[in-house]
Nucleic acid binder design. Structure first.
Lengths: 228, 228
DNA sequence: ACCCTTTCGAAACAGGCGTATAATATAACA
DNA sequence: TGTTATATTATACGCCTGTTTCGAAAGGGT
């Protein structure tokens, strides 16, 4: 009965558009009108797929989190526990344009969560996930004998999260951005000084698997291409 | 000819009201109407003292920075270079309600600076000041022989700023706030592990001088009190 | 052929925003 | 006792927001 449109797919297109909008303009600039324009539709169409701005924010954050999680799980599967930890930390840093956008997105939630209960709840959930993931990794590395065994894992976790958050803030907001090398060096230094690994960190760089990520595209373009 | 009102004083009262509003509601909630209401006036009166919202933000940030700077300069005057550094770092942490308010204020600037050039410029200036102040302190401590002398001061400075920013973000936004003790322990651990002091950190607590700070008051109340 | 449901655009609504303007109150000076 | 400059309120304007409403287009089921 409907116009032949894959509901779920189009919905995703709107979430992707919301994500792109936030990356570009910050969370303050996310309006129904802006997201709809970014997606190539009008507000009416957008509202058809998502009820409220709050839900749009929540779902677009879940959309964004999926990819990050996938990358992280790949790194967690590495046999080397120490390297596994280090690579997951690297994945959380604002090293390249894509991840800086991700951080722009995330930092928007920091401010929005002051006044918006829905966003606040979501922010807390994501923090909980991230703290849990990191604590588990540190504990695994410790149990594998890769780290000194007198380390306070919980405090180390919080310190690491703080360091990463702070690097992101400084890189994206201070006007004195840290280069990718600098960011990695800071985290390596911290790992060595605070976690005291029982063996040196590997010197070679592990490249992140680069999945195709149709993120910059305009949903309407694909549609047009198919029509031709 | 004017109604006997100290222009400069009333202006300050509005800046204080702006500061209180931001502390409470975050920077997104700062509007002419909200600030005027907080001060006990109407928007017209506020506009009479400050031209635009941008300038209000800039000036209220300077208002806030004054007090912090005063405290820090007091600690910088300590004879013990190592303790001086440590106490200034402590002053920058969200340890108590007052400073958490301060951080709420500051983090508002992070988001606002994405879209607002005036706020962005100001944020960069403040970061520059803070980085410079901290770098100077670390260098002084190193030259006094209190720190290992093979430390990369610039990188240590950036790391310290990141750690403090991250502690603030985690404490105010994550839903898993760090206690005052935890914050101090994290920073002490970092000082020991990363800066490698040549003597142990002092165990006793130095209390911050508590100046009277008429910050919570309603400007209209003082006026009324004087009238009676 | 007709209906019925989904998709989408266009427009309108109330409310909040920054800002401008006019009117009123008030104190100091002539 | 006016006159005048300032402080303050009240109100209005235009813009943008989230959200709602209405209507047109489109295709499958009967």
């Amino acid at each position: 009965m409907p116009r032949k449109v894959d509901h779920k797919l189009r919905r995703e297109a709107f979430l992707a558009a919301a994500y792109r909008t936030i990356k570009k303009k910050g969370l303050e600039g996310v309006t129904f009108r802006a997201v709809a324009r970014e997606a190539g539709f009008t507000t009416g169409a957008l509202v058809h797929y998502v009820d409220s701005i709050d839900k749009l924010l929540v779902e677009s954050s879940e959309y964004a989190a999926r990819y990050v999680r996938d990358d992280m799980e790949a790194m967690e599967a590495l046999p080397d526990r120490l390297e596994s930890l280090r690579q997951v930390i690297y994945l959380s840093l604002p090293l390249d344009e894509e991840r800086r956008g991700n951080w722009n997105f995330w930092m928007g939630f920091w401010e929005r969560s002051v006044r918006n209960a829905t966003v606040r709840k979501l922010t807390h959930t994501r923090y909980g996930e991230w703290l849990g993931r990191l604590e588990h990794l540190i504990r695994m590395a410790q149990e594998a004998g890769d780290l000194a065994d007198d380390i306070d894992v919980k405090r180390a976790t919080k310190t690491c999260v703080a360091l990463v958050d702070g690097i992101a803030a400084q890189t994206l907001r201070s006007g004195y951005p840290l280069s990718a090398d600098e960011q990695r060096k800071i985290m390596d230094d911290w790992i060595v000084a605070a976690l005291r690994p029982t063996r040196p960190l590997s010197a070679e760089r592990i490249e992140r698997p680069r999945r195709p990520r149709s993120n910059g595209s305009h949903p309407r373009e694909a549609e047009l291409a198919k029509a031709v």
